[in-house]
């Protein structure tokens, strides 16, 4: 019964998105929703490794940027359409996740975290020095003239992003409540004990980093068409990495719903503050919320809610 309820909600949200493109004309709303959905995918992806498995990735922005630049490079060289670009970004970033994981995951967890920081700067330097995709000056991307039956291109990328986000939610939920998910949770709780219980820890950690990388690449792939200008500074922006950590931490990391709730809540708040106050203040607020939540409510909103629920039941 629960399975069908989940899919009903997923389909309902998707249909809701389609209806929105028919009734709303103001492009701002689709821009805002795109930004929130992008952050949602990043948060979900981060949480698959961070929340489920217990390994911190500081280099989310690098996966995102490599996804975006894969798009730029393949669009420029081969003129591939968006769906293929998304698939290519998923493959490239999945492989990067696998590679970094393979090199460092046999060591203590903190080394992986530090390695992801290192990886972000290495890729930023590489792309800054890669003239084909614009180097430090950045690259302009022409948005395609056709956009199916939608009224504008932005509406179409919004629908694409909505599909990707729903797919990410489904993947995350599947991982969380499956046999693999319990293996990952065992790793997070105690890696030595997990291995002794028969959990192939290295393999599961590599699956986890690969899925995380691929999803982040997917989030980045449509980005060039959304903003039409990409440079290394904006694509590797630290704010992307901070959001990817803050949203699951605020929402709650142990449950697949946590990053979704965190992303929708924080993302919406950010849009409101950016429009009404200032974008710097919005960034500062996310940082402060992150620190406050992890010190005072490490289980996040989902954790607080479960606690409240249990107390009421008693």
């Amino acid at each position: 019964m629960k399975i069908s309820a989940f899919w009903v909600v997923v389909v309902a949200i998707f249909v809701g998105g389609l209806v929105l493109t028919e009734v709303v004309d103001n492009e701002y709303y689709f821009t805002a929703l795109y930004v929130i959905l992008q952050a949602t995918i990043m948060a979900i992806a981060w949480n698959i490794l961070g929340g489920f498995t217990g390994y911190v990735n500081f280099g989310s922005a690098a996966f995102f940027a490599v996804g975006a630049y894969t798009s730029i490079a393949l669009n420029k060289s081969l003129g591939l359409p968006l769906p293929l670009l998304i698939a290519a970004a998923a493959i490239v970033c999945g492989l990067i996740g696998l590679g970094v994981g393979y090199l460092t995951l046999r060591l203590k967890g903190v080394y992986f975290a530090i390695a992801t920081l290192a990886m972000a700067i290495v890729f930023e330097t590489l792309i800054t020095n890669w003239a084909y995709v614009g180097g430090a000056r950045g690259a302009y991307i022409l948005t395609p003239e056709t956009f199916l039956w939608f009224k504008s291109y932005i509406q179409m990328v919004f629908i694409v992003m909505l599909m990707l986000a729903l797919t990410a939610v489904a993947i995350s939920r599947m991982l969380n409540s499956s046999r693999i998910g319990r293996g990952l949770a065992a790793i997070r709780d105690d890696e030595v004990a997990a291995e002794c219980a028969g959990v192939p820890t290295l393999r599961l950690k590599l699956i986890s980093t690969t899925v995380m990388g691929a999803l982040m690449g997917v989030a980045g792939a449509p980005y060039p068409f959304f903003v039409t200008f990409v440079d290394p500074v904006s694509a590797f922006n630290l704010f992307i990495a901070v959001n990817a950590i803050a949203m699951p931490m605020i929402g709650g990391t142990a449950h697949w719903l946590g990053p979704v709730i965190g992303a929708l809540l924080v993302g919406t708040t950010q849009e409101i503050i950016t429009v009404n106050v200032s974008s710097e203040l919005n960034i500062l607020l996310v940082g402060i919320m992150l620190v406050l939540f992890i010190t005072l409510a490490p289980q996040g909103i989902v954790g607080l809610w479960l606690k409240y629920w249990r107390r009421r039941k008693k």
């Binding site: 319990r182 709780d189 105690d190 004990a193 997990a194 002794c196």
Partner: peptide, 29 residues
């Protein structure tokens, strides 16, 4: 080959029952 640890290492986020589910689903799969 199973082993128990001198200093207990439970999977702390799980219930007692779920703790047993891990070896049943992996080692004894």
């Amino acid at each position: 080959i199973a082993r128990s640890f001198q200093i207990p290492k439970p999977f702390r986020s799980m219930t007692v029952l779920e703790n047993l589910r891990v070896p049943l689903e992996y080692a004894a799969h």
